[in-house]
Simulated assay, not measured.
Amino acid sequence: MDQRTELSEFLRSRRARLQPEEVGLTPYGGRRRVPGLRREELAQLAGVSVAYYTRLEQGRGQNVSTGVLEAIADALRLTRAERDHLTRLVHPCVTKTRRPARPQRVRPSVQHLIDTMDNTPAYVIGRRLDIIAWNRLACALLGDFDAMPAGRRNMAWQIFLEPATRELYTEWDRKAEDVVAFLRLDAGRCPDDPKLAALVGELSVKSPEFRSLWATHNVQDKGFGVKELHHPVVGPLTLSYETLVLPADQNQQLITYHAEPGSPSAESLRILASWAMESTGAGMPATRPGA
């Protein structure tokens, strides 16, 4: 992915979110041809010259100082994830030697850990949202990862190109936005990843929804929250999720789901765990729950 283009489009998309009135400015004279702040208004807020900011937005800001970058981030009201993304776009990491990417694997102890979570769906995602480890209950809840071809064992691919996923997530639109925002963040971290470029290309060609969301340039990291699911075996589920970064590899994150104790969802999750236990002996069903 071209860093100059990414930087230019990201800054323009952040300007488009803000109106002069929102940031205490009197609207700059004349009819507005594009939404949001003009370059002149953004430069005024950040305390830099219009020419300086214009060069940055054109992707020519390699020598911009940390202080100026922070001032622009403040003016654009960027989140922490967006600030980090902007910094990586302006000052990308340089790889000295291009080596073939090694397969992503979790430490054996991590796999053992999630295997012991009999009543907790748990899985690990790596670069580009590849699903690289999971336990039995995660398969029962989200899909039989063991049976998937390696190329489809990816959360973004599943969300946009697996029909069962749209039925699984009650708020599919919100889930799709979150997935694209995280994938865009990952693209900023490793812009030269050919597998990521291939994934984005495939999703852009096959999914109009992905193509539209990718063009927004929204970025965010994974965190915690609540998901509403509708599972084909146990029905509605309200589950909280937590995301934990694994200490040995900052590109690997452990995601767990749990239900409020004593809730109908907790009972449904218990039933699903029993179903998963029974299904393991005979193999997971041909029609899997989702992904």
Rank of each mutant, 00 (worst) to 15 (best):
Y28T: 13
F182N: 12
G24P: 06
N154D: 12
L161T: 14
L141K: 01
W172T: 03
H91S: 03
N135W: 03
R83A: 12
R32D: 14
E278D: 14
G290A: 13
K96S: 10
L196Y: 04
V106S: 05
G201I: 09
L141S: 02
L185G: 07
S212A: 15
R174L: 13
D144Q: 00
H231G: 04
C139E: 15
E167Y: 08
L199G: 02
R14L: 09
R17F: 01
F224E: 14
D146E: 14
S268Y: 00
T97P: 01
F160P: 03
P20F: 04
E40K: 00
A198F: 02
V23K: 04
E177K: 10
F145P: 00
S268T: 10
A259V: 07
F182D: 04
A215D: 12
L213W: 08
G235K: 08
T54K: 01
Q250N: 13
P208W: 06
S240V: 02
Q44C: 08
R128W: 12
H112K: 10
Y241H: 13
Y53R: 03
V205G: 00
A81E: 11
A286V: 15
V68F: 03
I114S: 04
L18R: 10
A73N: 07
S279G: 14
T120P: 01
R77C: 06
I271T: 15
E267K: 00
N63Y: 05
C190G: 02
A282K: 01
V179H: 05
A43K: 03
T170V: 15
P208Q: 05
T66L: 11
S279A: 15
L269C: 08
A273T: 12
N119M: 13
G188V: 10
P208H: 10
R136W: 07
T243D: 10
Q104I: 12
V50H: 00
M1I: 08
K222D: 06
G235Q: 02
A147K: 00
A176R: 02
R189I: 13
R55S: 12
H91V: 06
R12C: 08
H85N: 01
V50T: 15
E41R: 05
V179Q: 00
L42P: 00
S207I: 13
A75N: 06
A291D: 02
L272C: 00
A197E: 09
Q104G: 08
E267M: 08
M1S: 14
A75H: 05
R77A: 07
I255Q: 02
